[in-house]
């Protein structure tokens, strides 16, 4: 996927078109490969491990491998925490909290393609922890 990002990384100066690759190797893990602004032709890699605590509560453990020889570590950490919190507000405003696996609760659009594919995959696996099982 290609997006214009006003600031794609701490090392990015100004906006650039950023290429993203998402991989979901397991239902509670995801890996994001992202164009590296500091080193052309390389990818920055960000991974997220989700640790469910209850069906509606989880801890998220991020790790990342970034090319950046200049930015101090404290700035890198704060930048990632800032991005993470922006994403968190979007996530936590999601209603209902349990993920609907069955159609009928919403009207999917083109932008929901990956989300729909993810949920179909969960359903095929029979993974229903944290999912809403009420049929429409």
């Amino acid at each position: 996927m290609h997006f214009y990002q006003p600031q794609a990384a701490k090392s990015a100066e100004g906006g650039i078109v950023t290429e993203y690759m998402y991989r979901v190797p397991a239902p509670t893990a995801s890996v994001l490969y992202k164009t590296c602004p500091a080193r052309v032709g390389e990818w920055d890699v960000i991974g997220i491990f989700v640790q469910p605590l209850t069906e509606e509560l989880c801890d998220v453990w991020p790790w990342m491998a970034l090319f950046d020889d200049e930015t101090p570590m404290a700035d890198l950490i704060q930048f990632q925490q800032m991005i993470f919190l922006q994403d968190r507000s979007i996530l936590e405003n999601q209603i209902p909290r349990l993920l609907p696996l069955d159609p009928g609760m919403e009207i999917p659009t083109q932008a929901d393609l990956t989300s729909v594919a993810y949920r179909r995959w969960l359903k095929r696996k029979g993974l229903t922890y944290g999912a809403q099982m009420v049929a429409a």
């Binding site: 101090p72 570590m73 404290a74 700035d75 950490i77 704060q78 925490q81």
Partner: peptide, 10 residues
Amino acid sequence: QAVDFHPGRE
């Protein structure tokens, strides 16, 4: 000046 407050407790 960023200080690594969490998790570094700088």
